Lab assay of single mutants.
Amino acid sequence: PEEVRRLVEELYRKGVSPEQVKKILKKQGIDEREIEKVLRRIG
């Protein structure tokens, strides 16, 4: 979803590592598979 992409990109631009991005967003209840999809697209 758009909102997940925005959150991931925001953290990524701040220099947060992909592993940390995953941890942070998982705590917020976001599906890990969604996060990984976005990270793959960015990375």
Rank of each mutant, 00 (worst) to 15 (best):
I30W: 13
E9C: 15
V8G: 01
G43H: 11
I24L: 12
P18G: 08
K37P: 02
K23T: 13
V16Y: 14
R33K: 12
D31M: 05
E10G: 06
K37H: 08
Q28F: 11
D31E: 07
R40N: 15
V8K: 00
P1R: 09
G43A: 15
L11Q: 02
K37Y: 06
P18R: 14
V8D: 00
Q20H: 09
K27R: 14
I24M: 12
V4E: 01
P18N: 08
E36G: 02
I24G: 01
E34V: 13
G15I: 01
L7K: 08
V16T: 08
E34C: 06
I42W: 07
S17Q: 08
R41N: 15
K37W: 05
G43I: 15
V21A: 06
P18M: 11
L7Y: 05
G29M: 04
I30T: 02
I35Q: 01
K27Q: 11
I35H: 00
L39M: 08
K22A: 08
G15L: 04
E2R: 09
G43Y: 12
L39P: 01
R13S: 09
V38H: 07
R6C: 04
V4A: 03
K26W: 06
V4F: 06
Q20V: 10
L7A: 07
Q20M: 14
E9F: 12
E9Y: 14
K27T: 09
Y12F: 13
R5P: 03
L7D: 01
L11N: 01
K27Y: 09
L11H: 15
E9L: 15
D31L: 04
Q28A: 10
G43F: 08
K26A: 12
R40H: 13
K26M: 15
D31V: 03
R13H: 08
V38G: 02
L25Y: 01
R13P: 00
G43T: 13
V8R: 00
R5M: 10
K26H: 06
E32K: 04
R5Y: 15
K14Y: 08
G29I: 01
R13E: 06
I42V: 08
L39C: 03
P1I: 11
E36Q: 03
R6F: 07
V16K: 14
P1E: 14
V21H: 00
K14M: 13
R13V: 06
Y12K: 04
K26P: 01
E32S: 06
I42M: 12
E32C: 04
K23G: 08
V16W: 14
I30V: 08
K22Y: 15
G29T: 01
G43V: 15
R13M: 08
K26V: 14
G15T: 02
R13D: 05
I35E: 00
R40A: 13
V38M: 11
G15K: 06
G43W: 04
V4G: 01
G29Q: 03
I30N: 02
I24N: 03
Q28G: 05
G15A: 03
K23C: 15
R13G: 06
V38F: 05
R6Q: 08
